[in-house]
């Protein structure tokens, strides 16, 4: 990738990011394969941080690997496992490893994962983590001490356009902007009309919005997400479309739907880009891009 993620964001082009999930353990063969497959096809690769509170390889180590391979890592950082001292230390450490994009998240609660007895930290929240990133850039840490060399980041956060109720969510969105977020990745969106309404509101702020695209692999998955995943709503016509797919062709259908949505978002200039989450199907991202006419 010639351009940095920040340059891509600022260039005004339709930005595409994808995601790499670090494995649980030291066998990184499959992950390296996904990195090689994706790094030159997207503008940035998110690296999840002990996603869903499940212990895995650290997002910093994997972000570093992506950088070494010539890709653009976006380091996800949650507030669940580290206090402010550790977060600040990890942020400047990421910087010296060439990792300078960060996505600031609160993090899932400990008990949803596989270390249910561990201490939930949440010393900071996503807003305060963003503020901390900006503080480190000013050459200071949160203890008020001078750094020997300031940090430098392109910092983003997430927003859930389908949250219910939406008002507290938007209040937090605005706080994240105040705290210094430059870009946002959204939770998965499927209802484009609803998303357009959100974008109409979001356009008043000087931030880039990347719509979250989660690959549907079956109608059952869509129904499951509607019932169980906060802030995700798959409209009935999409569930029907998935259910109507020929036997054994549901994944293809999901890729087609994802591609179609991305194409609409781009052609109608609805948002600034997309963040593709093909959970467990990372290898299918190039197919989604092809379906969107972006390959």
């Amino acid at each position: 990738m010639a351009k940095s993620f920040k340059e891509a964001l600022e260039s005004g082009k339709f930005v595409v990011t994808a995601e790499v999930g670090p494995p649980k353990g030291t066998d990184i063969e499959e992950m390296l394969h996904h990195i090689d497959l994706l790094k030159d096809k997207v503008d940035g690769l998110n690296v999840t941080d002990n996603q869903s509170s499940v212990m895995r390889l650290s997002s910093i180590s994997v972000s570093h690997i992506i950088k070494e391979k010539g890709g653009e890592p976006i380091l996800q950082m949650t507030c669940r496992d580290r206090n402010r001292l550790a977060l600040e230390s990890d942020l400047i450490s990421a910087n010296i490893l060439g990792v300078d994009n960060v996505l600031c998240l609160t993090g899932d609660y400990i008990t949803v994962g596989d270390h249910v007895e561990a201490m939930p930290v949440f010393d900071l929240d996503s807003v305060l983590l963003l503020k901390t990133v900006r503080l480190l850039e000013s050459g200071k840490d949160s203890g008020g001490n001078e750094l020997k060399g300031a940090a430098r980041f392109c910092a983003g956060a997430i927003v859930t356009p389908e949250a219910n109720p939406i008002e507290p969510q938007l209040l937090k969105f605005e706080k994240k902007i105040k705290a210094g977020a430059e870009f946002f990745q959204t939770q998965a969106i499927y209802d484009l009309d609803n998303f357009k309404k959100f974008m109409k509101y979001a356009r008043q702020f000087n931030v880039k919005i990347l719509a979250g695209i989660v690959l549907l692999v079956s109608s059952g998955m869509a129904k499951y997400m509607n019932a169980n995943v906060p802030g995700i709503f798959v409209p009935k016509d999409l569930i029907d479309e998935m259910a109507g797919a020929e036997k054994g062709k549901a994944l293809e259908k999901g890729i087609e739907i994802a591609g179609r949505m991305i194409k609409t978002l781009k052609d109608e200039n609805i948002c600034d880009g997309v963040h593709i989450m093909a959970i467990g199907k990372e290898g299918k991202v190039p197919d989604i891009l092809a379906a969107a006419g972006l390959a």
Binding site: R80, F122, D125
Partner: peptide, 15 residues
């Protein structure tokens, strides 16, 4: 549950 000071996390759902 997380003791957050700046608004809801992304996990909030229907209140």
């Amino acid at each position: 549950a997380k003791g957050l000071l700046n608004g809801p996390c992304g996990g909030t759902n229907d209140g």
